[in-house]
Design a protein around this nucleic acid. Structure first.
Lengths: 346, 346
DNA sequence: TTTAGCACTCGATTAGCTTGAGTGCTAATA
DNA sequence: TATTAGCACTCAAGCTAATCGAGTGCTAAA
């Protein structure tokens, strides 16, 4: 597949670079003039015809220039693109934006990261919040609210905090409650939320029954607050950025994209797909599973805290995207975020 | 101002009703045919010319029909519109949607209400979350996370729960911490968050100093978690609904509207404006302060818990809106929501 | 193998024409 | 006096034809 002649590579690259900027089909003459290839437009024309036949370029109509196909972009990303380092100003800008305040809550950090990502790329940022299910149990507390209600506070090792109001079984005295909570904290410490399955809970339940003779209902709280398949939150930034792109001058496209944005479940599946990979993943056009973004590219990367993968972030833009810039930025941001998150006393 | 002849009223109403459905300028013939006024188109033409001169109607261009002006809609809303009761099916549908699960957390209820509101009106719903500042302090707790960090949990009487991670002054022993918390709970109980001003905190600080000789830093937590002017959250529902309206076939308008949607601060100010009023408030077109929604109507109402005003909800659609339906729905939803929220053990 | 040259294609733009919904005005009518 | 019928007029929208020009493919010469 990497078997394109040097000349074809140069031309393909020229077409992509030009099209990325102009959003207009690129003609042979433009390539001949602008990119120091030292060939006449006629020759380039022939090469471009070849590239089209091979599937790297497309022609909107007979008498127009060429635009890159998904396959063309793919080749560009895999073989032609030069990784670009951010300038130190850009880096500084990102750091500044991200550090506006000393923030400890992970959710706010992530919300902020989405903002930064969209601002610095001018595309739309999607960030999947920490996957609650995969975090490890750190501690829980129950604060009594009234006779019959309590507030469960659940804290994971990744700094995720979850509240849930529950009904308390009337027969629990404060000290019994305390005992239950202590017992659970002891037993569950370090397990991932996934591991705290119903069966484990049932087991503990039996155990506790014997020891403390506490009402079964006491356990509904944990089940309730854990089992409830919590949708992973996806934070969006710069959703309107994409409206600046000429490919979205049609309201129909805008609608289909924005209704996707409204469906968190779909978004999180979209991001989850890429979440195994170590590196930055680029999904170009129809490589994406969802119809609605068949004309978009989604660049994703995962962020983590002390080597434990937390979630995925992505940039969504038109396939005609500034690939190297975006990849550079997302790379830098992920690294920096990992650093922040892993700093012990952040 | 209510001094329109009966005939003019009928005609104005006919124009508005028709335009609301068709989104096309309404001609004299259409009015004569469809609305049993018993007058010829010529007469109606004359009346419509009068109405235009008076500012209730507008003409996009000479040879087109008339469309209502903001003033026309205003008159309609104030004098001509018949309040429409929802059918019992509609009511049932709303109840079902809202009650999908037994939900206790107020935030989720509100999020859900936004969904319901947008689904049943087909416009965009904005709901301002509970105004933290105006809620009354109920209790606070501090859960130690590590040596140096603690989690402040703050609960208001309106069921709002707020977490914040803070740095603990190293010199506090658990029991000292406990004492401080108890003292604060005692002192602050029942005050609104607004009332817990810095000066009160300072006062308490002096007080505590004397009694417990506890480090000043212990107080940073409260200040930090309260003073931080927490932006009121605004929840959106059905943002894409508005894209179905023909008045938004132009991407420019979509962009300006959606970038407004991204700015929570602006949205909350928008809703706050109407938040004194008891009743449903209708802001038509240019009556709205923000340029971006000069072609929209915002219908708002406030919801409360046991007569304490919590927040505002609104419906945003084109000025050509089904006023009576929207007002009926928002009225019903607010009443119902108030009922749910005020039920003691919800 | 490359290039110059040329005929050809086809979207985009413009201008002119037609259509039709709707108006305003006037004169006739109830 | 209020209403209506009739008619000339207006103007956006839609259609067609003509023009323009960027860009192509092909051919023949270098």
């Amino acid at each position: 597949m990497g078997s394109l002649s040097e000349r074809k590579k140069k031309i393909l690259k020229a077409v992509i670079v030009n099209y990325t900027q102009s959003a207009e089909p690129v003609g042979s003459r433009t390539v001949a003039r602008g990119y120091r290839i030292g060939l006449s437009s006629a020759t380039i024309r022939n090469e471009m015809a070849d590239l089209e036949e091979m599937g790297y370029l497309e022609q909107p109509h007979t008498s127009a220039g060429r635009i890159p196909s998904d396959k063309g972009y793919r080749y560009y990303v895999d073989h032609l693109m030069e990784g670009v380092q951010l300038t130190s100003e850009e880096k500084k800008a990102i750091k500044n934006l991200l550090n506006a305040e000393k923030i400890r809550e992970i959710e706010k950090i992530i919300l902020n990261a989405a903002r930064v990502l969209s601002l610095s790329t001018n595309y739309t940022a999607l960030i999947m919040g920490p996957q609650f299910q995969k975090a490890a149990f750190k501690q829980m507390r129950i604060l009594p609210l009234s006779e019959k209600q309590g507030l469960v506070v659940l804290i994971t090792d990744t700094g995720f905090i979850k509240n849930k109001i529950i009904d308390l079984p009337y027969s629990l005295t404060p000290s019994e409650l305390h005992q239950v909570v202590n017992y659970l904290n002891h037993k569950l410490y370090g397990l991932t939320i996934d591991q705290v399955t119903t069966s484990l809970i049932n087991e503990l339940k039996r155990d506790l029954f014997r020891r403390l003779e506490i009402l079964e209902q006491a356990f509904l709280l944990l089940e309730e607050s854990l089992k409830e398949e919590e949708q992973v939150r996806v934070y969006l930034g710069g959703t309107t950025n994409i409206l600046n792109q000429p490919e979205f001058k049609d309201v129909e496209k805008v609608r289909s994209l924005f209704s996707l944005f409204e469906q968190e479940a779909l978004l999180s599946r979209l991001l989850e797909n890429s979440s195994d990979a170590e590196q930055v993943v680029v999904n170009i056009g129809r490589e994406n599973k969802l119809q609605d973004i068949h004309e978009c590219t989604l660049v994703t990367a995962t962020y983590s805290i002390q080597d434990k993968m937390l979630g995925t972030m992505g940039i969504l833009g038109p396939t005609r995207m500034e690939y190297c810039r975006v990849i550079g930025i997302i790379n830098y941001l992920v690294d920096y975020l990992n650093l922040i998150l892993s700093t012990p006393n952040r």
